[in-house]
């Protein structure tokens, strides 16, 4: 199949109609920072491209009493500069800032990052740690699904050809709660994560961990929650000993998951420093 048409959509309705009409012969293109490469490498060969990069309807960051919602076409530059997301959600900002280079961040979108479903997608661990939901629309209607369920595997997400992701939504951090992020890339810009980690933490006045959600990237076939590690922390004070126990557990998990890979030794060693730094930063941020 060769590319016949590119539709530059102005409204969501237009997109839903096009997707409905062309189904699996169509491909959404947002920032295009993954799609263009896949086209060139002939990994995909859609008949029509539906360009949603100008779709202002799904380019927004919204704040309500207890929720924050980010439109799928919001770029990483917008996320990095958002006044809504700073402070308690610093982890989200840091992950957006760590993507590629300024040029990439100006084009690349949060929706594209999630739907491309790379194991190293930088925005995925923070959103998993936030227990975010994905909002999806098609001509037939709307649905919502936990990101953790939406991500199915390397390059695979739970979406039908007629559907589009319109937004991502999650609960706002409450008092003494915060989101942190850490990434190991091999250089300071344009570095694909070798390891990324995100921690959502809720601490009480005694420094005891009320709630914690940990998600890592680039250490499995998709970004994933580390529930076994979370269990180590819950109900305990964040002492040096507890942190070290958590790190030991994390290493065990990675060791199993990465067994047989050439990167296993490096990643199970290096995760300690990245995780610990992110955890301590998050804990500090909870108190502020």
């Amino acid at each position: 199949m060769s590319l016949k048409n590119v539709y530059v959509a102005k409204t969501l309705d237009e997109v839903l109609n096009l997707l409905n009409q062309y189904g699996c012969e169509s491909k959404l293109i947002a920032g295009g920072t993954d799609v263009i490469i896949q086209l060139r490498e002939k990994e995909i060969s859609p008949k029509v491209l539906v360009d949603i990069s100008n779709l202002s309807e799904i380019n927004f960051i919204d704040e309500s009493e207890d929720k924050i919602t980010i439109g799928a076409c919001t770029t990483f530059t917008t996320i990095a500069e958002s006044s809504i997301l700073k402070d308690k959600l610093k982890g989200l900002v840091q992950s957006a800032e760590s993507v590629g280079s300024p040029q990439i961040r100006n084009a690349a979108t949060i929706g594209g990052n999630i739907c491309n479903a790379s194991m190293a997608a930088d925005i995925v661990p923070p959103l998993l740690a936030l227990d975010a939901e994905v909002l999806i629309e098609s001509k037939a209607g709307k649905r919502r699904i936990l990101l953790d369920h939406f991500l199915m595997g390397k390059g695979k997400v739970d979406i039908k050809p007629e559907e589009i992701v319109t937004a991502i939504t999650f609960n706002k951090p409450k008092n003494r709660e915060a989101l942190g992020f850490g990434k190991l890339g091999l250089r300071k810009a344009l570095a694909i994560a070798r390891i990324s980690t995100a921690i959502y933490l809720s601490l009480d006045e005694e420094n005891t961990c009320r709630k914690i959600r940990i998600a890592n990237g680039a250490v499995g076939f998709r970004g994933m929650r580390e529930k076994e590690v979370e269990n180590i922390f819950i109900g305990k004070q964040l002492t040096e000993d507890v942190i070290n126990m958590g790190i030991e557990k994390l290493r065990e998990e990675l060791n199993q998951r990465l067994a047989g890979r050439s990167s296993a030794e490096f990643k199970t060693t290096a995760i300690a420093g990245i995780f610990k730094k992110a955890l301590l930063e998050t804990a500090n941020n909870c108190k502020e």
């Binding site: 280079s101 091999l186 250089r187 300071k188 810009a189 344009l190 570095a191 694909i192």
Partner: peptide, 11 residues
Amino acid sequence: FTNYLIPTALD
């Protein structure tokens, strides 16, 4: 150049 890394301006 995804795998063969050269220093960027930040490095």
